[in-house]
């Protein structure tokens, strides 16, 4: 996947305002049939004031278990660290050829744990040289205001101070990220519904079927 967050396309409803008091709730659905979309990354980048620097909790973990990455999608703020613990009985050799971060962690034993810091924004696709079917995505976003949709397609952003934000919704199967501008205000509606066009799921199926993340 190409770096999807680079083109700043402000599509549609400019000046859409949301009530920021108890966080913004976003529902992501497919454009085709309106089904909820899980594992969609929702991020809001402030346009009127500087982006807050990440705190010490800017870390995430992607474990390798049952010869799969888990979770499938991970979101961190730029500069964040991702830990890759191997909870399998086999070795893995994870790598990424994505532009924001090219790296590899050569064969490492079960029980070992490695970490990588992601210092540029963008989507990083991670694979394993040993197991072709293993795939995971890390969305490195330039903001601490982000969330990931659950199985109902819902994600809740932390409460936003009033002002304009660039709202970006990305998904591994999205043809292109959905970008729109929102305004945060205390009196406005808290639920925002966004539709994304998804491409067919093209992940390698394992036989027997492994732990898939179907919608």
């Amino acid at each position: 996947m190409r770096a999807c967050l680079i083109p700043l396309l402000f599509a549609g409803c400019l000046g859409l305002t949301v009530r920021a008091a108890e966080g913004v709730r976003i529902i992501v659905r497919t454009t085709l049939d309106g089904k909820p979309v899980a594992d969609a990354v929702v991020s809001a980048t402030p346009l009127d004031h500087p982006v807050p620097t990440p705190g010490p909790g800017n870390t995430a973990e992607i474990e390798q278990k049952n010869q799969e990455f888990s979770p499938y999608v991970t979101v961190i703020q730029v500069g964040g660290k991702v830990i890759f613990p191997n909870h399998d009985t086999v070795q893995h050799h994870i790598y990424s050829l994505s532009k924001p971060k090219r790296f590899e962690i050569p064969l490492y034993q079960a029980g070992a744990s490695e970490s990588v810091v992601f210092d540029r924004p963008g989507i990083v696709a991670i694979g394993c040289n040993i197991h072709d079917w293993m795939v995971a995505y890390i969305a490195v976003v330039p903001t601490p205001f982000f969330a990931k949709t659950d199985d109902t397609g819902a994600a809740t952003l932390p409460s936003l101070s009033p002002g304009r934000y660039r709202l970006e919704i990305w998904h591994p199967r999205a043809a292109a990220p959905v970008v729109q501008e929102i305004s945060s205000a205390p009196e406005n509606a808290t639920v925002l519904e966004v539709k994304v066009a998804l491409k067919p799921d093209k992940r390698i199926r394992r036989a027997p079927t492994g732990k898939g993340t179907d919608y």
Partner: peptide, 8 residues
Amino acid sequence: YAPYPNIA
């Protein structure tokens, strides 16, 4: 693909 279905 690196990994499938990401085109590198």
